[in-house]
Amino acid sequence: MAIDSSETLPGQRGPADHERRTQILQVADELFRVHGYRKTSVTDIAKAIGVSSAYLYRFFDSKQAIGEAVCAMALSSMGEAVSAVAERDVSATQRLRDMLQTLLSEGMRLFLKERRLHDIIVVSIENQWAVTEEHNNTVSEAIEKIVADGRESGEFERKTPLDEVCMAIRITAAAYAHPVLLSRLGDTDEMETKLSAVTNLILRSLAP
């Protein structure tokens, strides 16, 4: 995972571009992947770096703050991919298909192939960390743009309130971007088949 130390991260202290902060996040990311978030302590991270736990608290308020920073960076790749799809110069219909496919592909990569990231995302959802809410907002904004563009182009119906349509799509698509729900959808081929069926149903409901 690329670490952007210039980003303002949840619960951080001191200068955002400090090289020690970057090191803390890199080491925490590695330990979370090996041992899982729940089994990794601030002491473990400090020992791996060769500093005291007190020193780490100069940069982050708590273990959760470190976890939120790592979680934010993990989710940012999915959010950026979804936002990029929403901006493509193709039909809204194609963008909606591509966005749902992107959610599935990124979800499988983050939550199933990298199991320890699955663990930290579950923790973030269970504890309602702000980073997950920000991620949900990013996905919702992408959906709203695509649907609004589709209405403007005449691809989608305009009678149903926009917020109602976007909420329904977000809820329907949640299974493909949620670590626990995604793991219950079967193997890759089965997931793709289910996604195709869901996408076709959504598009039929949006037809003018």
Rank of each mutant, 00 (worst) to 15 (best):
L206I: 07
S91D: 12
S196I: 07
L75R: 03
L185E: 03
R21M: 07
A197F: 03
P161E: 11
L112N: 01
I143W: 02
K63I: 09
E134M: 02
E68H: 06
I143G: 01
Q101C: 07
R184E: 11
T188V: 11
F60T: 13
S91W: 12
S5K: 15
V85L: 02
R184Q: 11
T8M: 04
S205A: 11
A207I: 02
A46N: 13
V70D: 06
I169T: 01
A173F: 06
R95M: 09
G11N: 08
I121A: 13
A84K: 13
S205Q: 13
Q64G: 01
L182H: 04
W129A: 04
I171R: 10
L103C: 13
R58C: 06
S77V: 14
M1Y: 09
G50Y: 05
E134P: 00
V198R: 08
D189M: 09
K63Y: 10
L117I: 03
R58N: 15
A46P: 13
M108Y: 03
F32L: 04
A173V: 02
E114N: 08
R38C: 01
F111P: 07
G150P: 12
R97K: 15
L195R: 08
M73Y: 03
S153N: 12
D119G: 00
L104V: 02
G79R: 03
T102H: 05
G79Q: 03
L185K: 03
S196Y: 08
E134K: 11
T160L: 09
E114W: 02
I121S: 06
G11K: 10
E114L: 04
V42A: 14
R109A: 13
M1Q: 04
S62K: 11
S140A: 11
G79P: 09
D187F: 05
Y37F: 15
A173C: 01
I169R: 03
G36L: 06
Q128K: 15
E30G: 01
M78D: 01
A48R: 15
T160Y: 02
L75K: 05
I3M: 09
D89S: 14
M1H: 09
G14E: 12
I171N: 01
N127E: 15
I3K: 05
E19L: 10
L195S: 05
L162Q: 14
M78P: 00
P10V: 03
E30P: 00
M191T: 04
T22G: 15
Q101H: 14
L206P: 04
F60K: 11
D149P: 13
F111A: 01
S41F: 06
A16Q: 14
A173N: 03
V90A: 12
L201E: 07
M99T: 12
I24P: 13
I143H: 05
R38V: 12
F60V: 13
T193L: 08
G67C: 08
R204N: 15
A173G: 02
L201V: 08
K39N: 15
E190V: 11
V123S: 01
R158P: 02
D189G: 08
T172I: 04
D17W: 09
S76H: 09
F32S: 07
E164L: 13
L96V: 07
G36C: 05
A28T: 11
G67T: 04
T22F: 06
V42K: 10
A130S: 14
K159F: 06
D17I: 04
F111M: 07
E134C: 00
L104I: 02
